[in-house]
């Protein structure tokens, strides 16, 4: 994962601004994740593979997504964990 402070080691004011920005960004991202819950989403994976599933949750580090009814080429997987490293993007409609 990403280092806790990219910009500033010493300057406390800079650190404060950075923390402020971090919290705004993270809150908005979490809101986005919450609104994905129980929605049909499409995962775009490597090699142009696209699979659909119902989004459940993400872990805090965004390393895995928990999904239900994953539509794979060889059948429907009732419950699954998807490694985020294998995903390029996720799309859904609000």
């Amino acid at each position: 994962s990403i280092s806790s402070s990219a910009a500033s080691e010493a300057d406390p004011e800079q650190l404060q601004r950075e923390q402020q920005a971090r919290s705004v960004l993270r809150e908005n991202f979490l809101r986005c994740l919450v609104s994905m819950t129980n929605k049909k989403v499409q995962f775009h994976m490597h090699e142009k593979v696209k699979v659909e599933a119902t989004f459940g949750a993400s872990d805090i580090d965004v390393l895995n997504f928990q999904v239900s009814d994953l539509q794979t080429p060889i059948g429907v997987q009732k419950e699954a964990l998807i490694r985020c490293q294998d995903v390029i993007s996720v799309t859904f409609d609000v």
């Binding site: 990403i2 971090r22 705004v24 960004l25 908005n28 991202f29 986005c32 580090d61 965004v62 985020c84």
Partner: peptide, 10 residues
């Protein structure tokens, strides 16, 4: 937004 943990873009 950008997730500050994973740098993922919304």
């Amino acid at each position: 937004t950008v997730d500050p943990v994973s740098a993922s873009v919304v």
